[in-house]
């Protein structure tokens, strides 16, 4: 994997490059050394056990928690986000595991949250609700399965519809990277299929996607490359076409060590800090 990151850290074909990212919470080293590269227009899957540091990595990438050390390059430019607003405006959209939508707001309000369209000037700026509703409808119906009414509260939507709204929000902006944190973790079989279809259609539109998932089958179905994390490190990278479920399981558990990474005894056997 080191060869890959070094080969093209400045190439514009790599939307996002992360090198040696580190993050500690007090004495707990949640991220020891995380490096990965997202090729443009591809789906990169990030897998690892609970507590391997996947969510922390994502949080560092998007600015929810600034990393302690390491480098993040977006389209070749070094970036450092200290809050999620910066990450968003630079073009990194995230669909988080649980905190995706605000239940008591409408679909349209959720889609435009933090980016509301206003009219008027100076201190007298009012929401252009009609325009937001219309655009929200367009955004959702591009992706959606059974299109929810954009005025209905998210609370009334099914799990699949919610995820569709969250994905539409992430994809609807001119974003460089869409990060999906366990997009189907809470869904049933049918809804999972639909959301996977959504992710495929995002890829077909040329989106660069980082998919965090526990589901190896899903990773094999959806991704172009797989990056494996273990105990706060990115320990392996595979092209999806060259790997299989067994190998991924072995890499995640540490039963199989990547040839590049054997300086340390199996860190997966160490007690794991709980991820926040």
């Amino acid at each position: 994997m080191s060869t890959l990151t070094e080969a093209a850290s400045t190439s514009t074909d790599e939307v996002l490059t992360v090198r040696n990212l580190q993050k500690s919470f007090g004495r707990v080293q949640a991220l020891r050394e995380a490096s990965l590269t997202l090729p443009r227009g591809k789906v990169t899957a990030l897998i690892g056990d609970n507590g391997a540091g996947k969510s922390t990595l994502v949080r560092c990438l998007v600015g929810v928690q600034p990393p302690d050390a390491g480098e993040v390059r977006l389209n070749g430019e070094p970036v450092r986000f200290t809050n999620p607003e910066q990450g968003r405006s630079a073009g990194i959209e995230t669909v988080f595991q649980e905190l995706a939508l605000v239940e008591d707001l409408s679909v349209a309000q959720n889609l435009f949250l933090g980016r509301e369209i206003t009219r008027g000037f100076g201190p007298l700026k009012f929401l252009d609700r009609r325009k937001m509703r219309k655009e929200a409808h367009d955004m959702v119906s591009q992706l959606a399965i059974n299109v929810p009414q954009v005025t209905s509260r998210v609370r009334r939507l099914s799990g699949g519809q919610r995820q569709a709204v969250a994905l539409a929000r992430a994809a609807g902006w001119s974003s460089s990277v869409v990060i999906l944190d366990e997009p189907t973790a809470a869904l049933g079989v049918q809804e999972t299929q639909r959301v996977e279809q959504l992710i495929r259609s995002l890829r077909e539109k040329g989106m660069t996607i980082l998919l965090i998932s526990h589901n190896f089958e899903q990773v094999l179905r959806l991704s172009d490359q797989v990056v494996v994390m273990r105990a706060g490190r990115t320990v392996a990278r595979r092209d999806t076409s060259d790997t299989n479920g067994q190998e991924l399981v072995a890499l995640v558990t540490g039963a199989q060590q990547d040839s590049d990474d054997n300086e340390e005894p199996d860190p997966a056997l160490l007690p794991e800090p709980e991820e926040r």
Binding site: P84, L99, V102, G114
Partner: peptide, 10 residues
Amino acid sequence: GSAESSRSLG
């Protein structure tokens, strides 16, 4: 509704 989501949206 959700301070965390709001924060994550900037």
